[in-house]
């Protein structure tokens, strides 16, 4: 091979390697900058106390609490529905049926719909249509459910995370060997018994992983809750489904763009961002631990 050719090759491979390392470098810089920026403010105190002085000081406990509540309600809605959809796609639908293909297309579409659209849908459907309808029917028009609250925000978020659950549960179900299903059926189990006793237990770790991925997605998304329930500041924690709530991501957004003195609260902003990043990280860590424990137990 000619020398010129070899140089071109080296240059080309070098460019591809450079691109890969550039991405990695940006990820590292991002992490490091946020850790450095937030580490001084970050403390137990910061995590457990309320904001003070018009959010110029104090902690972010209500935002953490609101985010946790949001993802819990969201999971309660998204995980069972996502799991059942995955079961349908793998166990009941024939791969070529039009219905199954339409569902798959819908799931993929759902995964690519911009998150702000979910916010609009939450507003138009949950708040105005369902909530407003509930107020009209049960409360004689008195405004209670027809306004943003944690329930509507969580349900909106669950639509967004539904595909995440479906995809990872489906993947897990497909790893349950066909031989095991056949063994169960050959023993005289019905289809549903086989699903309930063999398929679902066999994909437990996938359901767990799907839940955790959905939670970490739901904890970080802000656009869907901008106008479906997140609040700028609340002096008390939400106690009912019809209450508004504070949220980590929303808090970051508000503090960084709308607070009276952005520079003064900069450490708080960095620390809040650090908390959100750590939360995502810890969720993934938990996923790994649960999965390995499940596998050990199966052995």
């Amino acid at each position: 091979m000619s020398k010129k050719n070899r140089i071109t090759g080296a240059l080309f491979v070098g460019t591809t390697a450079f691109s890969a390392f550039l991405i990695i470098a940006v990820i590292i810089i991002l992490l490091v900058v946020i850790i450095i920026g937030g580490k001084d403010t970050f403390s137990w105190e910061f995590l457990t106390s309320f904001p003070q002085d018009g959010m110029m000081k104090g902690g972010i406990f209500p935002a953490i609490y609101g985010t946790a509540l949001l993802v819990v309600i969201m999971s309660v809605a998204a995980v069972p529905f996502g799991t059942i959809t995955a079961i349908y796609l793998t166990e009941y639908a024939s791969e070529t049926s039009i219905l199954a293909q339409t569902i798959r297309f819908a799931v993929r579409t759902l995964a690519t719909v911009p998150s702000i659209i979910f916010g609009l849908f939450g507003l138009g459907f949950f708040i105005k249509f369902v909530g407003g309808g509930m107020d009209d029917v049960f409360l004689g028009g008195q405004l209670k459910w027809g306004q943003p609250n944690i329930l509507w925000a969580s349900l909106t978020m669950s639509l967004l995370t539904l595909p995440v659950v479906i995809v990872s549960v489906e993947e897990a179900i497909r790893t349950v060997p066909r031989e095991m299903r056949e063994a169960s059926l050959a023993l005289g189990a019905t289809k549903w018994e086989t699903i309930r006793r063999i398929v679902i237990p066999g994909s437990r770790s996938g359901i767990m992983t799907g839940t955790i991925l959905a939670v970490s997605r739901g904890a970080g998304e802000v656009a869907p809750i901008l106008f479906t329930g997140a609040a700028y500041y609340l002096a008390t924690l939400p106690t009912s489904l019809s209450d508004q709530f504070m949220n980590l991501g929303y808090h970051i957004y508000i503090m960084a763009t709308q607070s009276a003195n952005v520079d003064q609260t900069l450490p708080i902003q960095f620390a809040t961002t650090l908390v959100l990043l750590m939360l995502t990280f810890m969720l993934n860590l938990t996923a790994v631990i649960i999965r390995s424990r499940l596998r050990r137990k199966a052995k």
């Binding site: 991405i23 970490s216 970051i252 961002t273 959100l276 990043l277 995502t280």
Partner: peptide, 21 residues
């Protein structure tokens, strides 16, 4: 995995990083 990790970064975090840094 590192790039998949980037996919998991909340966009508000990326927005914050862009805004501040």
């Amino acid at each position: 995995p590192a790039i998949e990790l980037l996919a998991g970064f909340p966009s508000v975090v990326i927005g914050f990083f862009a805004l501040m840094v």
